[in-house]
Structure formats: C-alpha cells, structure tokens
Nucleic acid binder design. Structure first.
Lengths: 111, 111
DNA sequence: ACATATACATTGTATAACTATGTATTTTAT
DNA sequence: ATAAAATACATAGTTATACAATGTATATGT
C-alpha cells in the first residue's frame, strides 16, 4: 500500500493548506500560537506541529496578513496573540475562492 | 491584497494535490502525459506545467503506483501511456479518505 | 523531586512545483 | 516552400515549506 509514499504525500498536502487553516481560524477570534494548535486539533483531524506553526505565523506577519501583540499573564508565560489585518481578510477571501474551486475540480475528476 | 503571497500559496497548495489529481485521472483510463495535462485543463481550472508532470509521473512510477508503456504511433512521436497499479489503486483510496476528511475539516473552520 | 503540560523559538533536512531549457516530430498558417 | 505553433518527451536549478529535533522557561500534578 506504500505507507512511505502516503506519509510524505500527506505532509505535502499540508503545504499551503496550513496557512489557509490558520487564517481561517484567526478570522473570527484572536488566538495565541499554542491555543491555535489546540483549537485545530479539537475541531478537526488536523495536527499542526509547533515547529510548523511558529515559523508559519512569522511568515504571515512578515507578509502583513496578521499582527501580533504580547499579553502578560497574571501567572505563567506571556502569550503572543495574533489577529488578521485587513489585508489578511481580503487575502483569505481570495484563498477561499481558490480552495473551493479546487475542491469542486477534484470532486469532478474523482467522480 | 498581497498578490505575491497568493501566488506562492497557490503553488504550495498544488504540492501533493497534483499527485492526487493525476492518480484520480488515471483511475478510469490510461493516458499519456501530454493528454493528461489536456484532460485536467479541460475538466477543471487546474493547469499542470509540463516540467511538473513528467517528473511527477516518474516519481509515481518509482513508487510503484503507476506503470508505463511506450506506444508507437502510425504518425507522430511515440506516446508513453500510464496505468494505475493495484498498489496505486489502494493508495488512491487512502488518499481520498485523507482528502475528504481535510475538506470537511476546512469547511468546519471556515464556517 | 519528577514528569507532564504550557508557550515560545530556531536549525537542518527533505520534498515538490515551477521556470527555463532542450530535443524531435507534425500540423497549420502565410 | 517556409515559418510558426502544437505535440510529446525530458532534465537542471531555484524556491518554499512541513517537520523532527532541539532549546528555553514556567506551572501543575503526583
């Protein structure tokens, strides 16, 4: 059944998908990184590695799709909260269009 | 709106997706490379570059998911036809499961 | 005390899409 | 007749990103 191929493939599918997922999650609420991972794990079957998410959030910030602010906790480690920028919201809309077209295309060819 | 980001993102989404698309197309018929590109272009919005497809088909062959055979033409350049192997068919089923779970997850978080 | 969970981050590796380029044949347009 | 475009394969180099491994530091449960 070629488990090795399947494993590599799933990893490749996540490329790009994870940015889309993160922006979707941040559309309605602001979250800090660790919380975002937990949210996605709770509501979907998707597991995002920490070593994936933190660089991803930094990329999104550099691209001006999200902003972040540190929030001190009364107890515990400070948290970095992320919010969508207006650019981020517009871009997310474009991404959704592309994604749903892709879904439709794949549905068509997988009959 | 960050066109640069969007362009890169679409390219990343294609990683993995294209292998899935190619296997889906080959599920019901055998095709040669150039024809496969035309088929996908005709039935979907997806454009596969030649420099992407030929290496992809070679990978799939090396992974034992497809086989190929040369077919001479009465006129014109010989064509290399690709067919799914039994391993390819099984793997495709696993891929479909993952893909449709992913779809569902994304639908959930993009509300 | 010790393990686990929380919360951030970086480095190195592997993989795959795409551009550019190349070869060769056939068809279409001028 | 000849040039351009389409058909049909292929490879090398560039770029981007997921993930494992590793590191720092605090808090909580046993």
């Amino acid at each position: 059944m070629n488990i090795g191929f399947l494993h590599k493939w799933k990893s490749q599918v996540k490329k790009g998908t994870l940015a889309f997922i993160a922006l979707n999650v941040l559309k309605d609420n602001e979250y800090y990184g660790y919380e975002l991972i937990e949210q996605v794990k709770k509501h979907t079957k998707i597991e995002i590695a920490e070593g994936t998410l933190y660089p991803l959030l930094n990329r999104l910030k550099k691209e001006n799709l999200v902003t972040s602010k540190w929030v001190e906790q009364e107890s515990g480690i400070p948290r970095k909260y992320y919010t969508l920028t207006p650019t981020g919201e517009e871009t997310l809309l474009q991404m959704r269009t592309f994604w749903f077209d892709l879904e439709k295309s794949i549905k068509k060819i997988s009959k």
